[in-house]
Design a protein around this nucleic acid. Structure first.
Length: 271
DNA sequence: CAGTGGGCCTGAGTGC
DNA sequence: TGCACTCAGGCCCACT
């Protein structure tokens, strides 16, 4: 479900509320993608220092380690003083002195992992290979171009892989390529500077706007305080196969790249 | 080593 | 109404 904006909006919706809280207990439901990595009781007594984000991972800095949370395809978090008894798809509860943080995840591609810290082998395995943060100053045009020049793969797959830049999921990948006039199948290394600049700008602007709107193009997102996304960012190409392009009227085309669907306008995205 | 495809899991939607 | 099938917003890992 979540791409970078949804994860960031989720983070903002509970980071202040949980900061400074003491963990009272933790409870697991069905197995998630990976084991927690410690007994749930090990979390009790630890203080929640801060909540950060890296790519689509949420990083809860605890006084005794780091709790990594990933929402996978279908995960969502709620944070509230009182939550009802866990339902069938609620698979992790972190009960704190300031409220309960609950992971709801029907498909269970999500994960909650405790490690000793960001430098631990496990944290490095999960976070070490991640690319640049698209909303940070480090995401310069030059660094972006350098990253794309170093691969032979099609641009869509390079964006999704997250090794050059993180947070661009399957929907936003199609959208930013449309805005930049780039066909998803072209080799990343072959894109000229003019289009590359448009792509760099589109990534920053689209993601920043989505975060700012508290929302998303997604259908069923709500943040940890229960507020829904605003649906301000309607998809221009994603999911619109056969529908006339909003810019030129040409029917949008769909295709599969690496088991994932891509959409593009054959006229607006010629190269 | 870079690049590709399989698989994890459940629910919603479609076609017969 | 029921069944079989396809597809879905992510990402690790085995394989080529």
């Amino acid at each position: 479900m979540p791409e970078l904006p949804e994860v960031e909006v989720t983070r903002r919706s509970f980071a202040e509320g949980i900061a400074g809280a003491t963990v009272l207990s933790a409870a697991l439901g069905k197995p998630l993608r990976w084991p927690l990595g410690c007994a749930p009781s090990h979390l009790a007594g630890q203080r929640v220092v801060a909540v950060r984000r890296r790519g689509k991972y949420l990083l809860l800095d605890l006084s005794g380690g780091l709790l990594l949370v990933h929402l996978g395809m279908s995960g969502s978090l709620r944070f509230a003083h009182h939550l009802p008894a866990p339902g069938g798809h609620d698979h992790f509860d972190l009960v704190t002195s300031q409220g309960v943080l609950r992971l709801h995840d029907p498909r269970r591609f999500g994960a909650v992992v405790f490690t000793t810290g960001e430098q631990s082998p496990l944290a490095q395995k999960l976070l070490g290979g991640l690319g640049m943060e698209p909303l940070s100053d480090g995401f310069s045009f030059d660094a972006f171009r350098q990253g794309l020049r170093a691969t032979r793969a099609p641009i869509k797959q390079v964006l999704l892989a997250g090794k050059v830049v993180v947070g661009v999921g399957n929907i936003y990948a199609s959208e930013v390529l449309f805005l930049a006039g780039i066909r998803p199948t072209v080799p990343a290394a072959s894109i000229g500077d003019a289009r590359l600049r448009r792509l760099h700008t589109a990534i920053r602007e689209v993601l920043a706007l989505a975060v700012e709107r508290g929302g998303t193009t997604l259908k069923d997102f709500s943040s940890a305080d229960g507020n829904p996304g605003h649906f301000q960012l309607e998809a221009r190409v994603y999911g619109r196969e056969g529908v006339p392009c909003l810019a030129c009227g040409t029917p949008i085309r769909g295709l599969k790249q690496g088991q994932r669907s891509s959409y593009f306008c054959p006229r607006c995205q010629r190269a």
